[in-house]
């Protein structure tokens, strides 16, 4: 009886939290409808597509086929494409949670009026992340459709891949939000950009991580993008084993850690 009461109360407060976070995300959807924002979204989708065409297809013609760890033989384009999805999930989530979050907090002072409502700083962070995921998921869907059409994966595999891309977005959104609260000025974003490019080039995107010597390999296996690429490639090429759970666990952990740190930091910044 008591447990039912407690549980229903917990459920009610979780529902209220969810509703308030959705309201924060909804603000962004409403704002996006008015602006040139949709073009920004389109550009975020075109970029990985260009990489796929130039490197996956262009360079791929020189490389020829590729044998995965489990012996599956795939074209180079099929090898690179999943990495492009992972990278675009990263870029979308990071852009939304660092640059845009920082701008809304520091320059537009958007949240000053939001914290006067029942919405808590944690729910603002969650709502922004939700929006970042929504944006990332749109990229992923579009890209998976193209991959399927080009025969780089199958419809069922694409369907299974979509939640994984959301998880990658969640992990990078969590990290991005922490970084967003640490930024002092726009210059600091250059450091983030360098980090993103480094991960984009070396996280097993264009060549397997096994090719590097021990120390760089350990470093790159610690980056979240490495795990994101491995997870998504495993799914689009359907060549995974139990180690895939390790990648999932790693990304879940990063997302959870990032979100809880970000929640504490936004709380302290908005409600001194």
């Amino acid at each position: 009886m008591l447990t039912t009461l407690v549980l229903s109360r917990v459920a009610a407060s979780a529902a209220a939290r969810g509703q308030r976070s959705t309201a924060v995300a909804w603000r962004n959807v409403t704002a996006a409808r008015h602006s040139a924002y949709w073009w920004v979204l389109v550009s975020g989708f075109v970029e990985p597509l260009l990489y796929l065409l130039s490197i996956g297809v262009g360079v791929g013609a020189l490389v020829g086929g590729f044998t995965l760890a489990d012996g599956t033989r795939v074209s180079y384009a099929a090898y690179v494409a999943p990495a492009m999805i992972a990278a675009s999930a990263m870029n979308g989530a990071v852009a939304e949670t660092t640059m845009n979050f920082f701008g809304k907090m520091k320059y537009m002072r958007l949240y000053d009026s939001v914290i006067a409502t029942p919405v808590a700083p944690f729910e603002i962070a969650l709502g922004e992340l939700l929006w970042a995921l929504l944006r990332g998921a749109m990229y992923s869907v579009a890209f998976l459709v193209i991959m399927t059409a080009a025969g780089l994966t199958t419809p069922l595999r694409a369907l299974a891949t979509l939640p994984a891309t959301v998880l990658v977005g969640l992990a990078f959104g969590g990290i991005g939000m922490v970084l967003g609260t640490l930024m002092r000025s726009w210059q600091d974003f250059d450091y983030i950009a360098v980090g993103q490019v480094a991960m984009f080039l070396f996280s097993g995107t264009f060549a397997p991580a096994e090719g590097y010597s021990l120390v760089p390999r350990i470093i790159l296996e610690l980056t979240p993008l490495y795990h994101g690429v491995a997870l998504i490639r495993g799914l689009t090429t359907w060549s995974f084993d139990w180690s895939i759970l390790g990648h999932v666990g790693y990304l879940v952990g990063v997302a959870w850690l990032g979100l809880s740190i970000a929640a504490r930091r936004t709380g302290r910044m908005l409600c001194p």
Partner: peptide, 23 residues
């Protein structure tokens, strides 16, 4: 003290979006 209206939204959306924060 400082008008913290949302410049990305219309006049009425400033009210409707805000109302959703109250559920």
């Amino acid at each position: 003290q400082r008008d913290s209206l949302d410049d990305d939204l219309t006049v009425i959306e400033n009210l409707t979006v805000y109302a959703r924060y109250f559920g």
